[in-house]
Write a protein that binds this DNA or RNA. Structure first.
Lengths: 108, 108
DNA sequence: GCATCATATGCACATATGCGAATATCATAG
DNA sequence: CTATGATATTCGCATATGTGCATATGATGC
């Protein structure tokens, strides 16, 4: 088990907080993908894919195994990533609280 | 209900993905706080607090009501923020998958 | 060995971010 | 109207980030 401090939490979030990296994680969620798979699926240059994978690797969100000449990437912590992606994908109410609600229930 | 595209999801995450802003959200989670409360609690300069609050406001994560000369900030979407903070605070297993596990269960 | 395919790394450049310091705004009290 | 307290905004600067491009690495096949 691991506990992250505020700084580590921010770093983890920042690694995920990029449109391309979110897309990469969504793909890896569906299954193992090699770099050129991702490149073709997302239609971005191969070096760019590698750059983003490097960032995700640094946060230990993904890893890979070698299959012939391919590097097959997969989610290292699928439950963490999947719950976060689910969370982001989910529809959620924009429950803008009224002043009364805030003053009544949350003040201390 | 709202659905975010990949870019909006990244922006939302980036707004949260900062140590100070995480700390601000943790404070607001406990209750309503005015700017100088936050400044004192986090021990950072007041303009810096305002800067971070501006970013959080832009993502509609926080809002405020005026009480005399104070601006009392609160979480606009507490359930969203709280589940995300809980998620980050939670201990989670570092379930680094083995190659066999990945190849067996996730390949397609 | 050499050629090739798959991937990674380095560099250059533009843009974004974070922060301190100074200053502006804005409501309230007097 | 002026002063004051609370908060916001602007500016300047250092640093970080993102990307394209060229190139390096590394394994495989011949």
């Amino acid at each position: 088990m691991i506990h992250l401090d505020q700084h580590e939490r921010a770093e983890l979030l920042r690694a995920i907080a990029h449109p391309t990296r979110l897309a990469v994680l969504e793909e890896l969620r569906k299954g193992v993908r090699c770099v050129s798979d991702i490149k073709d699926l997302l239609e971005i240059p191969q070096p760019n894919v590698s750059q983003h994978l490097t960032i995700l690797r640094k946060e230990r969100l993904v890893s890979y195994y070698i299959d012939g000449k391919l590097r097959c990437y997969y989610l290292t912590r699928p439950s963490l990533v999947e719950s976060l992606l689910d969370f982001l994908n989910g529809e959620y109410p924009v429950e803008t609280l009224t002043h009364d609600e805030v003053c009544g229930s949350k003040a201390d």
